[in-house]
Design a protein around this nucleic acid. Structure first.
Lengths: 334, 334
DNA sequence: CGCAAGCGTGAAACCGATTTCACAATAATA
DNA sequence: TATTATTGTGAAATCGGTTTCACGCTTGCG
């Protein structure tokens, strides 16, 4: 009656005059099938418009064709375009390799929660995690043999595969630029120091001082939380404690903008009196006045790299973590 | 030797002293199983730490437990936090209902491309699409019986289920507010008019004029493309053609900021000479100076609503599209 | 020339659930 | 009380692929 039932191996086998086993071999690229048979199978597949049933494949082979992308609830996902861009880079590369992206936005803290269970159950072939505060769960999964890639640096030195922006290099480049342009007293407004990324940017800043044989005054190092407001407040403190501060490296653009506001409110000019440089090259960096000089990370490339490392792992290749280069974007503020 | 092999129905059935069929019934909430047997099964499940194999379930039942979220390549995803927020709202609600989100970032134009094939093949139980320029593929899939929800309004009046922000209401509220605050000559910088959303915001603007028995001059309606630059340029045109324009509704925040820049460059003040109101309540709206008055949409709720409509469809309920309310956020610019 | 190794192939077992169907036990009806 | 529904249950078929195993045949080597 209805010819709309999807064809199965049985139909292909019949049409091509071979066994189902041979159909499977052809469709999985087994080399040692007779070319004529191979051709017959491929023709039948084409004629009948056959497409594999993924559930059946998954059940029989144990491979689901799915990769989880796990994003911690904690991340300020809700207004940061960062993760969206990374994720779309991941998704594109995975799709090109016939893998699908399963997106999970949840609390990653719980080593025994539903997400952990889901991943342990091998309902995915691998998992890509976004920077996390606690990596206990990830380490557990990795130990259990699940292929894993972390976007952002892991806390511990456990040999987890990761991709990350060159945070150290970014902090270094920004600070160095401020020094080179003549700043004498360069401050830093850090992000979350608990985070590896936050720490590394601070390290880059310190390294510049070290190379100059100097040590930054304690009052030049302020801790923010990546918010506009924290940039604003910490800058006020900086100005109060160091009236002659003439350069600021803010660890993200938002804090940089907050800092600029504070500087101008104090009757000083940017970059005339105080040069400011941010991190991320986000949209506001381009539209603010003065336009913000900043450290750009190629977020899309970050996602692509993460996906590629995952694929390499699935292919059983030996993979090494990658640090993606940054680029200093000079506009008006420094 | 190794006790780590995952238990299956067979093990549960043996431990509980029932058949596999009964195990299945218990685990799928079939009411008519003897309570004692039910308890025995549940105990066995707990004791053995059993968890279902999704691939097997999918193969046997036809339900994959996966919902696709399809995002068009064309969308300026790469720096718009909008879709990320919506997606995370979707993901959270789906997870609560034991469904996983499959993220697909690709070109949706191709009615016969890999995405279409993937979705047609029933490798997912349903699909949520983001606003699209062409909905041919979506309609095809819907006709094929795939549960579908669209985030953003569909082009045609086909009876596709969708959730959308009240774009008309937003345009109306913004324009009305400008009028109420005393503006005599209110202009609009539209977004992409081809888009339903863009068109609806313009309709809201026109409606205010209509209710006042007026018709906006042609020169007061300018078309932008949602970019900062287009806001800047169109505002320059507006000022040139209408030196006495005193209110502007820009169809997104970015264009509003561009407009403000143009106004200030022309030696006028905001909101003193020209009041400006945007749309989205994005980050820059809060950090710019003057702070931007804007139309806020509850993006997270939008995602949640989309997921809920999907779940309702899966449950066979009759669903109706939803329009989510907007909120006027008044800051400094109007 | 004889025997071991290698190759291509199909039959059948298998992956782990769901679902149909038949059957026995019980309740409802005549 | 005889008969028909109803109910709970297990055996077995089923979903659509993958993979093991054995078989027949060709090739290589001593």
């Amino acid at each position: 009656m209805s010819a709309k039932a999807r064809p199965t191996y049985s139909a292909i086998a019949k049409a091509a005059g071979v066994s189902e086993a041979t159909v499977s071999r052809v469709l999985n690229g087994d080399e040692r099938v007779n070319p004529e048979r191979t051709a017959a199978v491929l023709k039948a597949v084409d004629d009948l418009g056959y497409r594999k049933n993924r559930a059946a494949t998954a059940l029989a082979s144990g491979r689901t064709g799915l990769i989880a992308v796990v994003i911690d609830d904690d991340l300020s996902i809700f207004d940061d375009p960062f993760w969206g861009t990374v994720t779309s880079g991941i998704s594109r590369v995975l799709m090109e390799n016939h893998l699908q992206t399963v997106l999970m936005v949840t609390s990653v803290n719980n080593v025994d929660g539903p997400v952990a269970h889901y991943l342990e159950s091998r309902e995915v072939d691998g998992a890509i995690f976004f920077q996390l505060h606690k990596d206990a769960m990830v380490r557990k999964l990795a130990k259990a043999g699940l292929p894993i890639v972390i976007t952002g640096s892991p806390h511990t030195d456990a040999d987890l595969t990761f991709v990350d922006t060159d945070n150290f290099g970014g902090g270094y480049a920004a600070t160095k630029h401020l020094m080179n342009r003549g700043c004498k007293k360069v401050a830093i407004i850090t992000g979350d120091i608990e985070t590896t990324a936050g720490h590394q940017r601070l390290d880059g800043y310190n390294q510049v001082y070290r190379e100059l044989g100097r040590v930054p005054a304690k009052t030049l190092v302020k801790q923010g939380d990546y918010s506009y407001e924290s940039g604003h407040i910490q800058m006020q403190h900086l100005l109060a404690e160091n009236p002659d501060v003439d350069g600021v490296f803010a660890c993200n653009d938002l804090m940089a903008l907050g800092a600029i506001a504070a500087i101008e409110e104090a009757g000083k000019s940017v970059p005339g009196d105080v040069a400011v440089i941010g991190f991320d090259d986000s949209i506001p960096a381009r539209t603010s006045r003065p336009q913000l000089s900043t450290v750009r990370q190629d977020i899309n490339a970050l996602g692509e790299a993460a996906a590629q490392l995952m694929i390499a792992q699935l292919n059983g290749e030996l993979v090494e973590s990658r640090i993606m280069p940054i680029e200093l974007v000079l506009r008006e503020s420094a």
